[in-house]
């Protein structure tokens, strides 16, 4: 199997879907001639032509809206947000239009909005956000956030084939840092299914995106101290895999909810609620969140470092919880 970066895996998935299904096209800012700000769509214009690799004005509402219109007409558009921070400019289209169409009058809305999110690259407040929860709180959307190259390819394919609007959160920190064996044939990773990245018995760390790697690192370190963490990679945030979350909770009885997103109203809060509702009697300690604080993402390296959850913070939380 070829060794692909996370970014290359996304490109390969997109590319294969473009080849497989002529109704798939990509649309966004600087994605054609330039190949995208991060080069996810590099080479596609030459391969698939202007009709299917569409450079647009800086108009997130128009881009998303146009994708919705195309989806209603039977196409499978894939929108690139140059940065997920800018998705706010297309917010009305996503939450009021795309998300509700099927519920309101029944049409399929097969479209994907994908783009880089997350911090750790000194991007400052507008090139670093993890704003997935805006959409997790919107019924009708699906939200996925792969952590591995394998999942990135499998999930982009699932997202494209899905008949609902899917917001696909890529993590820019992982783009070129993660390299994995990725099958070059067709496969999908189902939306809504989490995966246990590392089994453990003492504490379940439920996370997603780049924080999966942080959790795995913490788990390796803590194993030396005799503490075994189970790392659950949600992969999908809406719908999320409640079954796996609860199973891991019941197995470990202690839970850390880890995310790069800010604290209040984050995925951790939602998971904590469902765990408290459905696995209360499996709990042997408080449900603990390790998250970014409730601030914008700061720029200066020490500020950003302070802001972001990291291995050390996870380990400290795990030790405290283990002692509880």
């Amino acid at each position: 199997m070829p060794l692909l970066t996370y970014l290359e895996a996304i490109r390969q998935g997109l590319w294969e879907e473009m080849e497989r299904d002529p109704s798939v096209f990509v649309i966004g800012e600087d994605i054609g001639v330039y190949g995208g700000a991060f080069k996810v769509t590099a080479g596609m214009l030459e391969e698939f032509g202007e009709d299917r690799v569409i450079d647009t004005p800086i108009s997130e509402s128009a881009i998303v809206g146009a994708a919705i219109g195309a989806a209603l007409m039977g196409m499978r558009p894939v929108v690139e947000m140059q940065f997920m921070d800018f998705i706010a400019c297309g917010f009305d289209q996503i939450v009021n239009m795309a998300a509700k169409l099927h519920y309101r009058w029944g049409p399929a809305v097969p479209m994907v909005i994908r783009g880089p999110s997350g911090a750790g690259v000194h991007g400052g407040p507008y090139h670093s956000q993890s704003n997935e929860m805006w959409f997790v709180h919107t019924p009708g959307l699906k939200v996925v956030a792969p952590a591995s190259a394998y999942d990135a390819k499998g999930l982009i394919k699932s997202a494209i084939r899905d008949n609902n609007p899917v917001i696909f959160y890529e993590h820019k920190f992982l783009y070129r840092r993660i390299k994995e064996d990725v099958p070059d044939q067709d496969y999908v990773v189902p939306i809504g299914k989490a995966v246990v990245r590392r089994p453990g018995t003492d504490i379940s760390v439920i996370t997603y995106g780049a924080m999966v790697w942080t959790a795995l690192e913490a788990a390796s370190e803590l194993e030396k101290e005799g503490l075994t963490l189970e790392v659950v990679d949600l992969r999908s945030l809406l719908p999320y895999d409640e079954e796996t979350v609860l199973a891991s909770t019941r197995k470990c009885s202690k839970v850390i909810l880890l995310h790069e997103d800010t604290r209040t109203g984050g995925m951790g809060g939602e998971l904590a609620a469902v765990i408290a509702e459905k696995a209360f009697e499996a709990l042997d300690g408080p449900i603990v969140r390790v998250t970014a604080p409730d601030t914008p993402v700061p720029f200066a390296p020490p500020l950003e470092e302070y802001f972001l959850p990291n291995t050390q913070k996870v380990m400290e939380a795990a030790r405290r919880l283990a002692a509880y």
Binding site: S253, F280, E281, L283, D284, G285
Partner: peptide, 14 residues
């Protein structure tokens, strides 16, 4: 006094 004086968790009580 019962169990309520024991500091523990929902799991342990179950």
């Amino acid at each position: 006094t019962g169990e309520d004086d024991v500091r523990t968790s929902p799991l342990v009580r179950r």
